[in-house]
């Protein structure tokens, strides 16, 4: 297993190299540059050209790429062209809200979706099943920002239970931290709940029709241990896969959710950087997301061996 993990970790190096090349090249080819955004509406062409030169945007592609790669290899992601703050510092500054949001959403989603899926499979064909599936369809269909606006309007503006926007760091206490994250996490978890609930239901239906479940029922076991001990464990591999894949959804969803709820996270950082063409920040954040995605896939593969002992690497 250790050998496998080591091999997988080492395999991230060429993958990250390809990602780095693609990200840099795409940004190079994309029209627009930060100089015109920095200079503003009233700037002359000469002003913009002066800033382009200062940023080194007038230099050849290969020189820029080589320099950037050299710095990356030394752990230096560069400096934001707007704020002059190192990209690493910006990422660290924005990591807490995004990680908090993702973890909270993940916990919330799994806690809601897995029982929902199990319940729907157990009561397949009944009104409970149809209600769960209706929720799943709605969760997939309604855009995150619409759910976000609705939640903010009802639960923040009308009822006053939560703040409309903003983020309270963990250092300000668990209460304020949870209050600031609950609405964004609820909005973001809708699609995720729908995805996990549907997958759980489908795999549970398959498992519940197997002979060993029928035997357990015949032995007079209660429904609860049958569903959650015998069936769910064997239905877990596809569910774990979906949870892993869903992290990519969360990253995408966090971009929208952080904008609607004004969370100073990595999603907002990415959007702002793209709109401003802040190249070092875009490159740094995408590299980080790629790395996280590879690591999450590795964790998912390791979890397989825990939930299904037949799987060996």
């Amino acid at each position: 297993m250790l050998h496998y993990i080591l091999r997988r970790v080492l395999s991230t190096v060429p993958v990250m190299g390809i990602v780095a090349f693609l990200v840099f090249s795409l940004l190079y080819l994309a029209p627009g540059d930060p100089a015109s955004v920095i200079a503003g509406e009233q700037a002359s062409a000469a002003d913009i050209e002066r800033i382009r030169e200062q940023l080194g945007l007038d230099r050849p592609y290969l020189i820029r790429f080589g320099e950037w790669l050299w710095h990356i290899m030394r752990g230096d992601l560069g400096v934001s062209v707007f704020s002059s703050i190192p990209v690493t510092q910006l990422i660290v500054q924005r990591l807490e809200p995004t990680v908090s949001l993702m973890v909270y959403t993940l916990i919330l989603s799994v806690l809601i979706a897995v029982p929902m899926g199990v319940l729907a499979a157990w009561k397949a064909g009944t009104s409970i099943d149809r209600a769960v599936m209706t929720f799943a369809v709605l969760g997939f269909s309604i855009p995150v920002f619409v759910i976000g606006y609705l939640l903010a309007y009802v639960m923040a503006l009308k009822l006053g239970w939560f703040p409309v926007q903003g983020y309270a760091p963990l250092s300000s206490g668990i209460g304020p931290w949870l209050r600031s994250l609950t609405l964004p996490a609820l909005a973001l978890s809708c699609v995720y709940v729908a995805l996990i609930a549907r997958t759980t239901r489908a795999t549970m239906l398959e498992v519940l029709n197997q002979d060993y479940i029928k035997t357990a029922r015949a032995k007079g076991l209660n429904q609860f241990p049958i569903l959650f001990h015998h069936a769910l464990k064997n239905a877990a591999v596809p569910v774990v896969t979906v949870i892993g894949i869903g992290v990519a959804l969360l990253i995408g969803g966090a971009v929208v959710t952080e904008s609607v709820f004004v969370l100073p996270g990595l999603g907002r950082l990415t959007v702002d950087a793209i709109l401003q063409r802040d190249y070092p920040v875009i490159q740094g954040v995408i590299l980080l997301f790629s790395f996280l995605y590879i690591i999450i896939n590795l964790i998912v593969d390791i979890v397989y061996t825990i939930v299904d002992p037949r799987i060996r690497y």
Binding site: Y149, A152, Y153, A156, L157, G160, P163, V164, Q165, G166, S259, V260, F261, V262, R268, V271, D272
Partner: peptide
């Protein structure tokens, strides 16, 4: 100076005294 990129959220924040 708090920058809120979303106009609807800004309106709600003003109404909610944020």
């Amino acid at each position: 100076w708090r920058w809120i990129p979303d106009q609807s959220t800004a309106a709600s924040a003003l109404q909610a005294n944020e």
